[in-house]
Amino acid sequence: MMPNFYGKEIASRLLIGTALYPSPQMLCDAVKASGSRIVTVSVRREAARGRTGQQFWDLIKELDVLVLPNTAGCKSVKEAVTTAQMARELFDTNWIKLEVIANDDTLQPDLFGLVEAARILNEEGFKVFPYTTEDLGAAERLVAGGCEILMPWGAPIGSGQGLANPLALKTMRAYFPETPLVVDAGIGAPSHAALSMEMGYDAVLLNTAIAKAGDPVKMGKAFAKAIEAGRLAYESGLMEPRDMASPSTPVAGTPFFKIDSAS
């Protein structure tokens, strides 16, 4: 069964960012190759007489995908709320990837601001996709404030470090069995995406790993395959790891077998 985000069934478990590609054509080709059905976008200042936004918007419309605007770079509740409101008008969607950033070096979420901004935006009819950490207390408050999806970070944005705290991510999955969970940020390789899927996450959101690949189109395909494999593995039921060896070949009937009586 595919994930459902705010009542919309999503045909791909890969959400993909639109920034940092070598060219607009490469962006389009990579998104198509990845099979992604949701792309993230932003709002930025327009110069006098500028038409850069229109050109970019025309490109995105051609992709025929769902658009998830972000509030990237916002450092206060007020900035995030106003940015979300501007994005809703520009992109004609009430979906918002809510980022309230605490620190420039780590780009980690300001959880206090995030919870407050999410509450305000949910009350205004937005469908909030909060970029958060694995903190369960903050997550509970986000859900109580109306968020029907949570997007914990894998690692700092753009770091490509993968899942920095797999135990906490596993705990979060167990704690929120029904809430759609998306690993957002820090994914650097298809194996990181596969691991997220094996842990039962509903989707992953990434940008740099594909955009900055030597061949973004091939990398888009690589992520699609990794995500499919990881999800199939999760649905199949992974074996429990153990500390000691356990023979897979039958022991009964082993030639020259004798009971070890050393102890």
Partner: peptide, 10 residues
Amino acid sequence: IEIVTPRQGG
């Protein structure tokens, strides 16, 4: 005054 437009984002 802020005047913004669609742009690439992650």
